[in-house]
Each structure stands twice: as structure tokens, then as C-alpha cells.
Amino acid sequence: MLRVPVQNPDGSPAMPTKASRARYWVQRGKATSHWNDAGLYYVRLVAEPSGRETQKISVGCDPGKNYTGIAVQSAKFTLYTAHLVLPFERVKERLGSAVIKRGKVIKNVRGRSLQRQVRRGRKIDRKVPFNQRSHRQKRFNNRCKKSKLAPSIRASREMEIRIITELSKVFPITTIVYELVKADVDLTSGRKAARSGKGFSPVMVGQNWCVEKLKSIAPVKTVYGWQKNKNGTSQIRQHLGLEKIKDKKAQVPESHAVDGIALAASEFVRYGVTPRKNCDTRGWKGYVNITYCVFRVITRPAYFRRALHFDNAEKGGVRKRKGGTITPFGLRYGDKVIAEKAGKTDIGWIGGFTNTKTKNISVYDHNWKRIGQFSPKKVQLLRRSNKLCVV
């Protein structure tokens, strides 16, 4: 039942085909095999196909604060499902020693301010005029920001946009179904006023911003999680017989990907009124077939950029190596590699190294937990970093 995506010779998406037919094309030289950043195998035709007709294919996106479910669905097949671990969840996991209150990460503000004061005092010579000082000038006016979108929410929405963009390159997507939530705050009373439509919420601003960006890929249709006309995500999922578990951290299709399937299937089935001669009847109309398909868990590497002047220098003016993405062994942080140790091979991503007497490379899994330290001679590069970990 698996379907393999197909591209035309010019790179435009065509209708998916059977896995056996895709293998036949590759073996006979009629197509070439490729992998995209979303962890999807596809083939590209060498010669012009006999026709370019396409059928209706929709993408369902169930966004969340920590996790997102995405699915690609046609009338006859489920083509792709994915479970996205959003950047905000990765920040909370990485800063385990930090204080987390109500889902917000509270950093060491005092230590950060002290380091900033030391940097300013070291860079600025106050004896010279202000316009001749050697400190960095301001890059922008941070007192009049144009956007109210929080950086954490923007990073999560950008990750969803990137995955859907990669899918649009191999699937002829006709519609994107995006779920909305009403989670706002009443500015007059300061209380939560869910589903009221009053006040301001960064979550809703992020959703509206994401919808506008997705419109450049395909027409976007918005759906709420629960609707009175029984066309919400929950009602469609129950009608299709899809089970959903309560454990949102579980990296299985039943946690979030099933909602993506329900959203995508809303383009093929709908609850409505059927006119009759004597009396109108209400029920489900349309047909969609839910099948077994590819499932991917997508995360982002937890490394960070080089932090110059993170702490004061030690004796001799030597500073600690903090952050960075380059290793002295020809590999970079986030590169997908295969490593061997004691006769056992592991596939993971580069996340650190030691360049002392023992030269080792640290390899991490997609949850950014270290698998082990390996010798550079026994680490082989599979793919350069694309800032995504897909399993």
C-alpha cells in the first residue's frame, strides 16, 4: 500500500506511484532516486511522462506548543505522516537545571547581566568621544518593533512551514488544512477568555502569521478542533475510527499524526445535509481511505552557535570553548554519521568532540541524547547537516 512520490524531469511534483514500479524505473534507468529533508524517499523521472494530470492531495497540520502532527492524504491513500518536536520543547529539555514556571524558561538573568557589563567595560574607551569609540553600534531600533510575534513561537511555526514546503516539492498539494485554537486573554479583566475572540494571544498571532506564509504554497483552509457542525478535527477523527492517546510526548502516530490525518481527510469527507423529497437527512458525505504509510519523527539538533566572551578569560588570556559547530576532524555539528565501536554500529548526529589526549567525537540520537564517544577514524559521514534530525 506504500506510495513513492514522483517528480517530473523539471522538478515539479507528479502523482505518487507504487513502490514496485518506482524500483523498476530506477533499475531500468528511467528515474533517479533521491531523499528530501523531510526524510522521504522519492524518484525523479528522466524522460517526459505521457501526461501530467494530478488528483486532489491535501496536507493536514495540527500545530501545538511543543509538538505538531502533519499528514498527507489523498482520497485512496495516506501518503505521509510526521511527528514534529518543536524548538520550544527542545529548549526546556536542554535547560534542565533552569527554573521552568508555567512552561516558560527563566534564565540566570543576573549572571548574564554581569557578563554583559564586563564586555561593555572591556570594549569601550570612555576617554575618547562617543562617535570614535570602538564598540559595536546598534543594529536596529529595538524600541519600535514591527512584529508582536514571540521568537519561540516564530521558530515553531517556521519549522512547520519548512516541512510543508519540502512536502510540496514531491506531492502536488492542492489544499493545506490548518487547525486553529481560540486561546486568548481578555485585556480588561486579565483572565483567560478562551473562544471569546477578545484580547490578544501570541499563539493566535503565530497561527495567523503561519497561515499567511502557507498561502504561498497552496490554498489554506482553517478548521477548529471542535465545531458545532461536527466538522471539527475531533469529530472527523472519531468518524474515521482513528485512535488517539493522551501521552503527547509519545513519538507514535497516535499522539499527534492522527489529527493531521483527520484534518487532511476533511477535504474528502464532510458532515452535512442531504436533500430528500419528503425530509432532509443529516450524515457524513464523501469517501476517504486511510492506509498504512511512512511515519517520521523530526527534531532539531540541540547545539548552539559559538558564544564569544561567554565568561572572563583565564590566566594567559585563554577563554573556554563554548558552543560552535566546527570540529577539527572534518565534521560539523548536526552531520548525520554512522559510527562503529566494539563491533557495533550506530547512526546518529555529531554533537560534540574532545581534542585532548583522547580525541573522540560525540554522537547523539534524534532526541539529542548521547549514544557514545567514538574515534574519528571510525566515524563515517552520511549526510551534511540540514538542521533537522529525522528518524
Rank of each mutant, 00 (worst) to 15 (best):
12 S>F: 04
51 G>S: 15
95 L>P: 00
34 H>I: 03
196 S>M: 14
218 A>Q: 06
263 L>M: 09
271 Y>R: 06
279 C>G: 08
164 I>K: 00
361 I>F: 04
182 K>A: 13
55 Q>A: 12
143 R>V: 05
113 S>V: 11
307 A>G: 01
4 V>Y: 00
332 R>N: 14
94 R>K: 15
60 G>H: 05
133 R>P: 02
201 S>R: 05
267 E>Q: 14
366 H>N: 10
233 T>M: 11
148 K>P: 02
25 W>R: 05
276 R>I: 00
98 A>L: 06
98 A>D: 11
265 A>S: 15
172 P>H: 06
5 P>I: 03
380 Q>G: 00
342 A>E: 15
28 R>V: 05
116 R>H: 11
338 I>D: 02
195 R>F: 15
82 A>M: 01
377 K>C: 05
211 V>N: 02
332 R>G: 08
118 V>S: 10
334 G>Y: 00
170 V>Q: 05
223 V>W: 03
368 W>R: 04
290 I>D: 02
227 Q>D: 08
133 R>C: 05
141 N>V: 06
87 P>W: 02
69 G>H: 03
348 G>M: 02
375 S>K: 10
10 D>R: 06
217 I>N: 03
55 Q>K: 14
105 V>C: 07
100 I>W: 09
196 S>D: 10
173 I>F: 06
232 G>H: 04
5 P>L: 04
38 A>E: 00
208 N>V: 11
13 P>L: 01
318 V>Q: 10
56 K>Y: 12
203 V>T: 15
138 K>I: 07
2 L>P: 05
110 R>V: 13
20 S>F: 09
